[in-house]
Design a protein around this nucleic acid. Sequence first.
DNA 1: AAGCGGCTCAACCGCACGTAC
DNA 2: GGTACGTGCGGTTGAGCCGCT
Length: 277
Amino acid sequence: MGRQPCCDKVGLKRGPWTIEEDQKLMNFILNNGIHCWRAVPKLAGLLRCGKSCRLRWINYLRPDLKRGGLTEMEEDQIIQLHSCLGNRWSKIASHFPGRTDNEIKNHWNTKIKKRLKLLGLDPLTLKPIEQKEQSGDDKNKADMIPKSTSKGSGQGVETKSLDMHATGEEPKSEKKMEENKVMMTWDDTTGFLNNYEVLWSQLELGSWMNQETKTSTSSYCSSSSFSLDDSSNLSVGESSYLQENSLHQWVDGFDSILSWETFCPLEKDFSFLENRQ
DNA sequence: AAGCGGCTCAACCGCACGTAC
DNA sequence: GGTACGTGCGGTTGAGCCGCT
């Protein structure tokens, strides 16, 4: 069969977005909402493909984006979520309101992965890597390890089965099956998280993860983004659902026609656009 | 000051998925 | 059920920045 390209690439602009393009896109979305990404560039007067517009909006223009680096606590949560979900960046990102999958993916690949390796842990499985791979200088390791994490390296500790870890290497045809494994019921998830906490506490690694942020799963679960405590009357699923929905509602809200004047109070959120060269 | 190498992150690409017809 | 289409996702790339020599 073969799929057609998402757009006719002939005559379309690529590469970095200009301020004018950003403003056109933002103006259009804020005034008209998002109905069909494919139609957006045409209607907004942009020489970009819909995909490119979507990416630009999600990763950069969305007013609810959090700016600035990820905190240590967020990093710890990412590590834990990654151990559960594997490279499902969008799912991981859904637990961090205002963060994008791209941002988290980049952060993982450039920083967290490196840090875990220096700790002697396989970033995919969190299992200890062979000793020989650890021969790097320890001084640098110490620099990479957060102050709260310098307690232990997890060396020689056999991690119990964390088969739910996606290795990121399984064939995509098995994705569905894998999804079924990961998409546990929320009750299962809660149970898993409890077990996971026990697991962490058994690992020396757990101790460094827990220290400053108290990010065993209990604190992880009481974080703002994945809260059991904050929404004690809600199941984890419900609270997570609410968080995801808040964004959907936010986007849907634009369907009810937001004028540029309405948008003006948000101006400060977009000041970065003017500050760019 | 210039050259170099490593790092970061925005953006692209290709494939998978969901859905309408 | 098969096909076409729009969207989402994850992997990868490359330009620009920064620190070091």
